[in-house]
Computed example of a mutant assay.
Amino acid sequence: MCRWLSYVGKSVFMDELLYQPDHSLVSQSKDATKAVTTVNADGFGLSWYGEKASPATYHEILPAWSDKNLKSIAEHTRSHCFLAHVRASTGATTSRENCHPFTWSKWSFMHNGQIPSFDRLRMGLEQHLDENWYLLRRGTTDSELLFLLLLQNGLDQNPQQAIYRTLEMVEQAISLKDIDEPFKACIALSDGKNILGVRYSSDGKPPTLFYKKKSGAVVMASEPYDESRAGWKNVPPQSLVEITDGSVSVTPLSVSDS
């Protein structure tokens, strides 16, 4: 499965997290230790916030470790908030349109996990989208559809409620089709000021998620970026994480499929 990292706090050069640590995200793209898939070579993406409310983005289908443009951008760009993702495809094609993070207006979104039997569920879930959201769809991933469902369900007005409604919508679709495989969702969302995280799975065994408080900042990631792992805290399964002004709140998620 994919690996990702999110950061919010004082402005830093992005390579300080993406390249410099001994187990950085770029290193994880070649050798992840907390994922089913060790190599994440099906593209990568980066979204970062600067002076504007909306994020800048960079996506490429090359493996992250081989892209000199990514390294140059990270070494020369400061940001107070950014999301980075290295992709291991669960079925969708390798294309820029399928690379995370996905963005709309002020929002950035990325995901590790999958909607099970997505080919059977895709049409029904897409039918929940109003035309204006459906027409924003550019790729073929379950992850992009999750983002659009979050927007449909009121992400701009009430992010927490949108998360609950979207998870419940997917669970209901799975139940109606009598699908046994679990829905797994390890999600990061940001509006450029705050970060929301989700660690959820139908079977209670979601992909890993950790966070670490730094001086004036918080990092949340699929796995720690340093070998010592000092200061990292494990997010419990079935949890919602809210990072605001350097503080971290972790609350239980209770999702119904009825």
Rank of each mutant, 00 (worst) to 15 (best):
I195L: 12
L176H: 09
Q161P: 03
A217W: 14
L176G: 07
S175W: 05
E171R: 12
F147G: 00
V198Y: 02
A162S: 11
W133Y: 08
K184E: 15
K212Y: 03
F210S: 10
M123L: 07
E168C: 01
N132I: 03
P224G: 15
L151N: 05
L121F: 04
G192D: 09
L149I: 02
I163F: 10
L167Q: 08
G197P: 13
D156P: 00
S201T: 05
I187E: 01
L121I: 05
R137Q: 09
A162R: 06
S222I: 15
E131F: 09
T140V: 08
A173P: 13
P207Y: 01
E223R: 02
K213F: 00
Y225R: 09
V170Y: 08
G154N: 02
V218E: 04
A217V: 14
L125K: 06
R122F: 08
L155K: 11
F183S: 11
Q161M: 09
G197F: 04
L155G: 01
L135C: 05
L145P: 10
L150Y: 06
M123C: 05
D130A: 06
P182S: 13
T141K: 09
S175E: 12
M220Y: 04
P224K: 14
V219N: 03
A221D: 15
L167H: 09
L189M: 08
V170Q: 06
R165I: 00
P182K: 09
R199E: 06
G192A: 05
R137T: 07
Q172H: 12
F183Q: 13
Y164T: 12
Y211R: 08
L148E: 13
T208V: 01
Q152D: 04
Y225D: 14
Q157W: 01
M169A: 13
L176E: 12
V198Q: 10
Q160Y: 05
E171N: 14
P224Y: 13
Y200W: 10
A173I: 06
L151E: 03
K177V: 09
I187T: 01
D156K: 12
L136I: 03
I163T: 08
K213T: 11
R137H: 07
G192S: 04
